[in-house]
Nucleic acid binder design. Structure first.
Lengths: 341, 341
DNA sequence: CCGAGTTGATAATACGTATTATCAGCGAGG
DNA sequence: CCTCGCTGATAATACGTATTATCAACTCGG
């Protein structure tokens, strides 16, 4: 049962294949004219046979596939990754839908050590017109290669240059973190500490930079790697810190829990602000103060930016930074005046 | 920045386009021979350029693209749909990954009245090798048309015939529901009621059939449409029902809550079993008894079945039914012996 | 030194559609 | 009668890949 083609329609209507195509595409240029009765005859046959043009052949002729690739550095749907990827993907899906594009998830990329690699043996990136890159951290060399190959892509999350500026849609962690510090300062805080790596990924760098700007370089830096929340808490209290700016949400929650367990009042004895509160806070018992990352909007705009790149390479701004909105929680308060009494 | 083609590769490697194609397809027939050094030269260029064959052109000639379409009747990522789609997609992603296939989400299909339509103006189904259909209910006419057009697809969830058997991977609601009833019978229950539509969708039909088989036709049927949980509860109690077999999880929870509010003890006064408990019960305060739908496994097997269809049209079993596992909760108990005393 | 067989590569073609160039027919104006 | 302009349709081609037929060069046995 071979597929019905325009040739078949043409034969049935007693015309040429070209006429069928012209009728289908409703061409009414001055250059292409079709007699009304001929057009009707073709339309009749099409209706009778239920013919529909093969979209694949159609795409052969038009260059773009209307397919946007989505490359995730971890599997998308396992629940461990879900909370992270979901909001981004929601925005991506919504924008793609509006642009009438399909989304291609590169599940074929082999997972090595829990991570996918863009450039592997049988790379299929070019199936899509362009690609959205999604991941906690994206290897610098892969970004560089994408740039080198002039492949249209957009990273979700700000990225440092890699053989040229990397097209990306990020969140303005620096400004948001700085604003958190300023707010704490207004409440009377003077002893700040940044809790987390503070380096490595761009997102950490940005937060640390914002922290430094807000504290005028006077803040402490408590690294969490290899330490328990309790140990970090001890270090903070010993140093006389009154407000902890925590890099990761999970670390923030852990710190607050550790404080509660020891009878350290939050925010009475120690204020804790988190640089990234999930959209739906999983821990209902703790309403942490901090800012929200506009993940959905980032997803949306990354697709929009990619579409702009595909239309016109000389697009204005290759990098977009979206503002984060303050989240009023219950873990930031005034510092205790009498704490050294 | 035109697309890289085999012609480009051929030029760079100093061979003809045909050789590139032959190398790519790893042809080792006696009729097609390629010198090892030539092959290597081509492979080198391919690797350097990151070339990947245009799937659309490929599809023109061959049948397969290594692309599996995923058609969802609602948007996937919005949180309202997430809980439903998520487990299916997890299985789909995992299986596709193993098969080295990419997933194409048909986000281009326009959403009308909150639902997508497969067959619309510019249908792109054939870009994929085949398609997984995912949705609470799938229009019968679309299934029929897919069958008529001989397009390879698999529906997730059992479907009635539509111009022939519909390839699908479903859950055996009938058997699972019947087993629930039997279990209640063993505990001493004799007054059963099925709560829900009990018809319309295949999933409802199956549950109802299982219920009828389990009750030997003696059970009641309480429809929920247009009624509050309280009204349903009243009807159940008035009829002397001791165990309610509830179609939807949300309805089940609502019924239990309504009972609690009125001081009706569950399961003391009324047992409630649910025909479909989510993997991660969102309502932590209620551990409902029922069975779990193997959503992830359904997703996985649907891809596997589709792959089988693509390899060999005369596949053995077009329809698969997976068993549901009993979930021991706290809403099914022995009926009160003295309730009429 | 010639015909046959082998090796390695290429030219040609098909897939189904969209588009462009071309062409046959015809009526009108010169 | 010839040419021009116009109408309506067709032939030809391109898109990128896979496959088949073909072909040049070389080897080898006789």
């Amino acid at each position: 049962m071979p597929r019905i083609t325009q040739r078949d329609i043409a034969r049935l209507a007693g015309v040429s294949q070209a006429v069928v195509s012209l009728v289908l595409n409703k061409r009414t240029d001055a250059t292409t004219r079709i007699a009304p009765e001929t057009r009707q005859r073709v339309l009749d046959v099409i209706r009778e046979t239920g013919y529909a043009a093969d979209p694949v052949a159609r795409r052969m002729v038009r260059q773009l596939n209307q397919i946007i690739g989505v490359f995730t550095y971890e599997s998308v749907f396992p629940s461990t990754s879900a909370d992270f990827y979901y909001p981004f993907l929601r925005g991506i899906e919504e924008c793609a839908e509006q642009l009438r594009c399909d989304l291609l998830l590169f599940t074929s990329a082999p997972v090595v050590d829990g991570r996918r690699k863009v450039f592997h043996e049988n790379n299929r990136l070019r199936i899509a017109d362009g690609c959205i890159l999604l991941g906690r951290d994206i290897p610098h060399d892969e970004l560089a290669r994408l740039n080198r190959e002039n492949y249209p892509f957009v990273a979700v999350g700000r990225r440092d240059d890699a053989g040229g500026p990397v097209p990306c849609v990020g969140a303005d962690y620096a400004a948001a973190t700085q604003k958190l510090v300023e707010r704490a300062r207004e409440l009377g805080h003077r002893e700040f500490a940044y809790v987390g790596a503070g380096e490595g990924a761009e997102s950490a760098d940005d937060r640390m930079n914002g922290f430094r700007a807000g504290t005028r370089g006077s803040g402490r830096h408590e690294r969490t790697a290899g330490r328990s929340a309790g140990e970090t808490l001890d270090a903070l209290l010993a140093a006389g810190v009154t407000v902890a700016v925590v890099e990761g949400y999970a670390d923030g929650i852990a710190l607050i829990r550790a404080a509660r367990e020891r009878g350290v009042d939050v925010p009475g004895d120690l204020s804790v602000v988190v640089t990234g509160v999930p959209a739906e806070s999983a821990d209902a018992d703790i309403a942490s103060t901090g800012f929200r990352i506009p993940r959905r909007e980032m997803g949306w705009q990354s697709v929009e930016l990619l579409a702009a790149l595909l239309e016109d390479r000389s697009s204005a701004t290759l990098q977009r930074l979206l503002p984060c909105h303050f989240v009023e929680g219950q873990t930031l308060g005034e510092p205790r005046k009498d704490r050294f009494d």
